[in-house]
């Protein structure tokens, strides 16, 4: 029963958070002076057409830009609730459509990145801790330092540079030309797999380095605890003992950083999407910000936050599953 209660409280606070985030997102996208009507007029004029003031006013009225900000917000958020995210001026299509066709890729890349991160970091971290100060441990530590220090986009640039100069292949995008607009098939899926590893590695390297360090440090700490000696004293073999006790406990901080890890992945995704020209939400979001495509940028910012919230929610639930102390609300 208290578990259910905890989950409900957690959901409630997430909902409140969501409202706050929507307000912040809205404020940020409406911060820039001038509005879409202005930039629309400017682009028309620069392409040699003439625009009258009346036309600009008409556009303003059409999108409700002449109303006070708070009314605009309520209109926006009201539409959201009904699944209407507004209209993207940059793409001349509803925001739902623009985002809808790109979001699955973003989610796929983020999930893939998390899987990659944990599948590599946990075993390597365990190995590093058990063979402390070995050659492998030092190698992982050095690679970890480099991985943590390389900005994602620099890694992407280096990969692109290396692939084009040494292998003569282009690593951008998620599909080869022939599958770009093709319908889903085994071939297209396979093509996706041969491309998606690039953004996954680029996005996952720093996280892997970080989680490896956490895993190594916590496992080393756990190995010094009394319960390890006590478990050894039962005659359990060293390997089984380590897997059952200290490793299991060292997983807790890893699980609890899952939400945070997702946040960094989501944070890093737009810039990588741009560099690698991926057909995901990244380039779209950055362009929307630059061209003040306000509904699109606002909606995307909100969606990024929702993804992160879902992630930290899952992480909290997982932590409750793996750690009875959290589940039962014990202090120690």
């Amino acid at each position: 029963m208290p578990i259910l209660q905890k989950i409900l409280v957690r959901l409630g606070s997430s909902a409140l958070m969501l409202i706050a985030v929507s307000i912040v997102a809205f404020i940020i996208v409406s911060l820039p002076p001038g509005d879409f009507a202005d930039s629309y007029a400017a682009s028309k004029i620069s392409s040699g057409e003439t625009v009258t003031l009346a036309e600009i006013e008409a556009i303003r009225r059409q999108f409700g830009l002449d109303k006070p900000l708070y009314l605009q917000y309520f209109k926006w958020i009201g539409g959201m609730v009904q699944g209407d995210f507004g209209f993207s001026w940059g793409y001349s299509r509803p925001v739902t459509e623009v985002i809808g066709e790109r979001l699955p890729m973003t989610i796929l890349i983020a999930t893939g990145t998390l899987l990659f991160t944990y599948i590599t970091a946990i075993p390597l971290g365990i190995y590093s801790a058990l063979r402390q100060y070995s050659v492998a441990d030092y190698t992982f530590t050095i690679l970890g330092y480099i991985g943590l220090a390389t900005p994602n986009f620099l890694l992407a640039l280096l990969l692109m540079f290396g692939a084009t100069t040494w292998f003569g292949v282009s690593v951008g995008g998620l599909f080869s030309l022939e599958y770009q607009d093709a319908a889903w098939s085994m071939g297209r899926f396979w093509d996706l797999l041969t491309h998606i590893w690039v953004p996954i590695i680029v996005l996952g390297t720093a996280g892997t380095a970080f989680q490896l360090r956490i895993m190594r440090a916590t496992l080393l700490e756990e190995l010094n605890k009394m319960y390890v000696t006590a478990a050894r004293a039962t005659g359990l073999s060293e390997f089984k003992m380590i897997l059952k006790y200290p490793v299991r406990l060292a997983l807790n901080p890893i699980v609890s950083t899952l939400g945070w890890e997702l946040t960094t992945v989501i944070s890093g995704a737009p810039i990588i999407g741009l560099v690698l020209s991926l057909p995901d939400t990244g380039p779209m979001f950055i362009n929307a910000l630059k061209s003040q495509d306000m509904f699109l940028a606002g909606a995307m910012m909100l969606i990024y936050c929702i993804l992160v919230m879902i992630g930290s929610f899952i992480s909290d639930i997982l932590l409750m599953i793996v750690d009875p102390r959290v589940r039962m609300g014990a202090s120690t």
């Binding site: 946040t263 989501i266 737009p270 810039i271 979001f285 995307m300 936050c305």
Partner: peptide, 9 residues
């Protein structure tokens, strides 16, 4: 809890 880079951007 807000992804930092989109916010900075």
């Amino acid at each position: 809890s807000i992804p930092s880079l989109p916010l900075w951007l």
